[in-house]
Design a protein around this nucleic acid. Structure first.
Lengths: 342, 342
DNA sequence: GCGTTTGATGAAAACGTTTGCATTACTGTT
DNA sequence: AACAGTAATGCAAACGTTTTCATCAAACGC
């Protein structure tokens, strides 16, 4: 099986050096450490490089020093409005620093995560960003053993073992619940994703319940519903709730669920806000412009993405833990039309 | 500036070979071409490899043969429900074939695209998948010069110069318009994104207008509106339309715009379907479960992602154009509650 | 049993950079 | 004008694999 692709049209560092009349070493320095080469030589090399259409081979470079200029990002799923936003700015930020982003998603399958980490290590990534705190020991060990910096993004926890950048989900759950309590609601339902393998949902729910209890509101099983991350399924759950003894307000684990509940109301002829107040978490695209607008907690995905990028870059360069081990990014409540005083 | 990260814990091919009592060459073969090494030796190497926790260094390998096992995917933006779905399955498919996905987004900035392609080439990608057909010559030339296979995904065109996998957008525009015409609508508005640098929107609109003309419906400027890819902005445009002389139906360039129009109706008290029929294109998440459900054209993002992965893999392995230069993936009309007979 | 094809392995030369060390070319000092 | 000190460059040895070629053993056909 001969390799077909030839390297005909690809000049190397050596060719550039030859044409510029300098040694390969100097050309290398020109690219990695431009300051230490004489201005005159610099321009000669620059000319040679562009006239040959030279593109450096970072793999060859990475072989020598141990940096590949690549950062891995492992997300549960890309197909999710809010992660997408994070990914977008994360990738942009990395490119500003001349790094590339290697993305992989595991669809909440931890076995896959091991395979992914392995694959990333084979590619000599300079750092890894994980989402959340629910991770298997094995991949973390593999990374630690090779001194690859790792951070967790999206969530914040004061006592996390990994450096983290994100929001405090207990607080998030508490804030939105508090909002309903402030509006006088006492019969509140909670619709959350399965908390088994989802630390975000778990923390949010526990924060929400804790807040409710302070007001003597104890969510019994009827008021505690599970809905997957899916508008249609959440809508079905919403219709179920409305068809029974309906509460006056609903706290939703995320905006997707909240949107489902909104549609359930519309389908059942229940007046949103007047009959049922709804709060979400996330402020996903669309939440602002629905009718009525959804009251929700804005999670600053952009800030998180940017901060995560900065942190992992810092670590990958210094090889040390980051100056700031844990960065808490504040979420803010956005009041829209979906909530009202009882 | 000393490099901090040491390679203490990282055994190499040589160490594995030593422990297994074979030469490095054999270990290499074991990984790349397992069939040609004797079963007995195979197990010895396997043992040595796992006991040392060996992880191969693909960069070193890529240095020799010219394959990095990495495929680049360049999208306008990741932060977009429908691309996200494509990316998700594309990445999954690649991993099944032991490849990794390098993602970059340019936010519709063509200059950035050059920088991205450059960065990908520096990383020795085995292939590139682009979205759509609007691309600068320069990056394409750079890729061609180095014999890096390129395909365009998402769109289909019978005469495309690049191999492509996707749907025919003219047809898409025609189908949804035809649906409204079939329902008896003759006063139809068209709300589309800026067509300047967006071939998808351009093709869809031209298909839609062509279909309308067949029925003597000529969209004058009042019936031809521009809306960005943003629910809020589309909603505003919708409200403008409704406040003036409203049509009986609207064709939207995509589901985001359609959702905006739906919300505009709800905000203005216009009855959807009864007073105004709305069709979108895309069948984004949420479109199915809105109230009423949105009639739209389902674009099979999953199929496209998978087919795109298969095609680029085929090309990167053979080094030749794909067996099937152009793959058209059929879109299907999904009728929901947002359209009705006049 | 003898040449001959197969099958499995080893030795060593790549692959395209980076970098420590050595060397040369300058600058300013006395 | 000689000297030290610094700035700029070159030489050559890595980096960790893959792969060609050669070798050696075993199996085969006669």
């Amino acid at each position: 099986m001969k390799t077909i692709r030839s390297r005909k049209g690809a000049p190397g560092l050596v060719e550039v050096a030859a044409r510029a009349g300098v040694s390969p070493a100097t050309v290398s320095r020109y690219f990695n450490n431009p300051d230490i080469v004489k201005p005159d030589t610099k321009t000669r090399i620059a000319e040679a490089a562009v006239s040959l259409g030279y593109i450096r081979d970072r793999m060859a470079g990475a072989l020598h020093n141990r940096f590949s200029g690549t950062i891995g990002l492992i997300v549960p799923t890309i197909d999710n409005a809010i992660f997408a936003e994070l990914i977008e700015v994360f990738g942009g930020r990395l490119r500003e620093h001349d790094r590339t982003m290697l993305i992989a998603s595991h669809g909440y399958d931890l076995n896959l995560e091991v395979a992914i980490v392995r694959s990333l290590l084979e590619r000599r990534i300079d750092g890894v960003v994980l989402i959340g705190f629910d991770h298997d020991e094995i991949p973390l060990d593999m990374l630690a053993q090779r001194y690859v910096p790792v951070i967790s993004a999206w969530n914040y926890r004061a006592n996390s073992s990994l450096p983290c950048v994100g929001t405090d989900n207990r607080e998030a759950g508490a804030i939105v619940t508090q909002h309903l309590l402030d509006l006088g609601h006492r019969d509140i339902a909670f619709v959350f994703p399965e908390t088994e393998s989802n630390d975000r949902a778990r923390d949010r729910l526990s924060g929400a319940i804790a807040a409710a209890r302070k007001y003597g509101v104890e969510p019994h099983s009827e008021r505690l519903r599970i809905a997957p991350y899916d508008i249609g399924a959440a809508k079905a759950v919403g219709q179920k709730i409305l068809s029974e003894r309906a509460p006056t307000a609903v706290v939703c684990g995320n905006d997707i669920i909240a949107q489902g509940i909104v549609y359930a109301c519309q389908a059942s002829g229940v007046r949103i806000a007047d009959d049922l107040s709804i709060v979400g978490i996330g402020d996903f695209s669309g939440s602002a412009h629905m009718e009525p607008g959804l009251t929700t907690l804005r999670l600053p995905a952009q800030k998180i993405g940017q901060q995560a990028a900065d942190t992992i870059l810092e670590m990958s360069i210094s090889g040390l833990p980051p100056a700031k081990m844990r960065t808490s990014i504040k979420a803010s409540l956005i009041e829209r039309g979906s909530t009202k005083h009882v």
